[in-house]
Every structure is written in structure tokens, then in C-alpha cells.
Design a protein around this nucleic acid. Sequence first.
DNA 1: GTAAATTTGTCAATAATTGACAAGTTAAAA
DNA 2: TTTTAACTTGTCAATTATTGACAAATTTAC
Lengths: 108, 108
Amino acid sequence: MNATFGEYIRKLRTDNGLTLTELAALLKLDSANLSKIENGKREFDEKRLDKLASAFSLDIEKLKVEYFGDQFAKKMFEFKCSPETLIVAEEKVKYLKSINMVQTEIKF
Amino acid sequence: MNATFGEYIRKLRTDNGLTLTELAALLKLDSANLSKIENGKREFDEKRLDKLASAFSLDIEKLKVEYFGDQFAKKMFEFKCSPETLIVAEEKVKYLKSINMVQTEIKF
DNA sequence: GTAAATTTGTCAATAATTGACAAGTTAAAA
DNA sequence: TTTTAACTTGTCAATTATTGACAAATTTAC
């Protein structure tokens, strides 16, 4: 599976035999705007990931991987970032975790 | 080297013996706001990456790696994304490139 | 102690995102 | 074909987020 997040939603929707209007209702948004999301002309709002997961009984962790993976990829593509960026990101996640752990230790 | 982007700027600045006011002037922003950036209380604006690069004669590509790596890491940390996210991001960058190539071929 | 450097708080101005609706096109069914 | 549902596109006011700017601390280095 490889697709933009919009394409991913569209596949989910059509595979499950829903119309834009039907899924839009579940996600509490306008069907016209859902159309734009599926066609990559609007962003899907982070806040609706939970609704999307429950609409199709998806694992929210898997969904986050798709969603944020898409976000990062779009940025990298737009700004022509070197692949090294992702390696550095991985290191920095570890760094943030270590910082946070220390803070937590101090605080409590 | 491992640091947030704010810490990274601070190191560059102090290593080069500049005050907040001096670097802020080069970046065309308020020194108070630069302080916040260095302390992770504000975002550094994408649009100033070029100015930052030339202020310290940095390779803009390396700088982008630091900058976007930091952005992605912060998101991942905030939303507790699985490391898998970065692998998916890498795949999706390839996908976007392939899509774009096809479009380019058709258009011209 | 004081002067420079830095930090923090605030807020109006600007910019970006969202929700909503109208008006269009496409597609499938009769 | 005509009709009807599905989808797409454009627009814009309203909401929300970001930025620039300045005042007022606080910290640091003589």
C-alpha cells in the first residue's frame, strides 16, 4: 500500500461502499470538503483521526503512521529535503525522549 | 551533535560570539522572539533558513536537515508516533516523486 | 552597582485554516 | 436522452494560529 492520505481515505471509503456524504457525516464535516481532502486539496484535521479510526474500525496507531508519514513526506517533497532528514528526525525523537525523562525525574 | 533546533541556533550564535540582538538583526526579527526560539517557545520560520545559512556560512541543505528533522521529531514526540512513521514517510516521498514524474511526462 | 544581555508576558496585526454553501461537472440508471 | 445521486470546484466569512513589536522583568558579566 502506498498512497497519499487522501487516496488512502478514498480507498477506505469506496471499499466500504460509503458515499462522500455518508463518510463526511461520520467525520462531522462537509462532503465538499471531504472531496477536497481525498483529492489532496485540503488537509485532513488531526483532530478527526479518532473519528476516522472508529468509522472503519482501524488501529489508531496504524492510522497515525499513515497520517504523519504523509505529512512528513509532503514537507520533504515540497522542500526537496535529503533522505538524511528522516535519520536526523529519528535521533531527535530519542533526544526529546531523553530530555523529557530527565525532566520527569527531576520534577517528581 | 544532537539538539533541538533552538539549541542548535544558540550554539551557532554563542560559538560565533554574537548577542541575541546582533543575530536577530541579521535574521530580521526581534531579539526577544529569537530568545523564545532558542528556548523552544516559538518556532523558527522556514522563510528565514536562508538568512540563517548565510549568517553563519552554512550549507543550506544541512540546515534543512536539522530544521525539518526537528519539526518531524517534535510532531512524533507530541503524538507518540511509532518509529515506523519515518519508514512510511520515506516510502511516501518516493511515491510523491513517482507521481510527479508521471505528471511531468504527460504535461511536457 | 550597573549596564548589557536575556527572558517573559502581552497583544494587535497578519496569515492560515475551517466550515459552509452555491454552482458546477460527472456518472449511473432508467 | 433525461433524471438523479455523487462528486468537484470556487468562494468567503468566521474562526484559529502565527507573527511582530514593545514593555517589563530577570540574569549575567564586569
